[in-house]
Design a protein around this nucleic acid. Structure first.
Lengths: 217, 217
DNA sequence: TGATCAAATATTGGATCCGCGCTAAGAACC
DNA sequence: GGTTCTTAGCGCGGATCCAATATTTGATCA
């Protein structure tokens, strides 16, 4: 079995994603230790990991709170994502290797197949794998790690507000264009297409979030 | 007194910056506990924090190692920094407030004064404050936190390879142009100037690093 | 002589207990 | 009646001990 703190950090993350812990909620060590049937040491370790991933906020001697995920946070996150996806797509096109080329095209194809079956979780995973393939093709570990963190946060908002299933055709088209730009080693086009892709995703998400915020007032 | 793990994480970071621990070196709990006169629990907590900051690498059941900082890591880091500084400068120009405007211009002036005294540490701090002011003016917490992490890593390489004192006039000129673009709320110019500024810093650093690598062979 | 396996050792991971600081509630004094 | 000080309890931070896991060393066999 994997170490408890890894196990626990995964479970807490899943519970946050599934809304078991609300944004801003205080996470007490004793409570969590009881809930996950362990001592408080692995819990502290796990919360520290989640803190590093930006999922929980921390204040010394006062404990951890679930990070509030609101419209303004998402605007910030997509600003960063926009910049990073673009630079990674450019680098992926420039540094393209045969292995990376295969990884990207098969991830693209897989997404198209899986998304046709309207299994949301599988579609999300396939989408993640596609972007991961580009990220890894860029060879930029720093950017890849940031994007990985962001993906965990995006899972929370997609769970809460729904994934863009109505935009699925558009997403597939975006992926196709982006893939061929990278395979053609057209860095300029790849950068622009990646940026445009993220912009569309942002518009879609923000519209939904604002809709929910208004209707819940 | 602040909590021990915070104290310890700061001390370990400083020791890494000052080269007391080499890149790739294994950091053992018992050893560090002995060195910093504490038990191994605060050490674990401290290393976990440094891991979150990207300064040490971690493998479960095997412990932490000081992250190797080489040319390829710096290329990656500056790719990210280039993208982020540009987007933050644009946002800072768009969202400019009177308070942010004051903060940026006074940080710019302070850098010019301090750098004239050729105190390297103070110059670094002033440079950091200038970029921090823009970062905070952008209002993007996510980007600010990433840049803060990167700054800690840059302190290590500047300590090792020297800060660009010969480029000081150029840096001041860059800062002046960038500041006026932001104060004029010219987002386009601010973004381009910020990107150019980071590019110059990268060229300077990489040249130095490659020089040292060659001469140490 | 080199490779592989096993045992010993070194190191990380986890539980429990206690101390300390923060917070909040109640009483006393102004 | 309001403000401040004290006290109690609640929860985080840290030490120590023990368990689990990795790494290394040495021995045996091909």
């Amino acid at each position: 079995m994997a170490s408890q703190y890894i196990e626990v950090s995964d479970r807490i993350r899943e519970d946050i994603i599934n809304g078991k812990f609300a944004g801003g909620e205080r996470l007490k060590l004793a409570e969590l230790a009881n809930l996950y049937a362990t001592s408080h040491m692995p819990i502290r370790e796990a919360l520290r990991i989640l803190n590093g991933q930006g999922i929980v906020d921390f204040t010394p001697n006062s404990g951890m709170r679930v990070r509030e995920i609101d419209v303004s946070f998402m605007i910030d996150l997509f600003d960063v994502r926009l910049a990073l996806e673009a630079v990674q797509a450019r680098r992926a096109a420039e540094r393209l290797t045969p292995a990376a080329s295969n990884a990207i095209s098969s991830a693209k194809t897989e997404f198209e197949c899986v998304s046709a079956e309207s299994d949301r979780d599988a579609t999300l995973k396939a989408n993640h794998r596609f972007h991961q393939a580009i990220s890894q093709a860029s060879g930029n570990r720093e950017a890849t790690e940031i994007e990985e963190r962001h993906y965990q946060i995006l899972r929370i908002v997609w769970q809460r507000y729904g994934y863009a299933s109505e935009r699925l055709e558009g997403v597939i088209e975006d992926h196709r264009l982006l893939t061929s730009a990278i395979l053609d080693q057209d860095a300029e086009a790849a950068g622009l297409l990646a940026a445009a892709h993220v912009m569309r995703a942002r518009r879609n998400l923000l519209t939904k979030m604002r809709g929910v915020e208004r209707s819940s007032q």
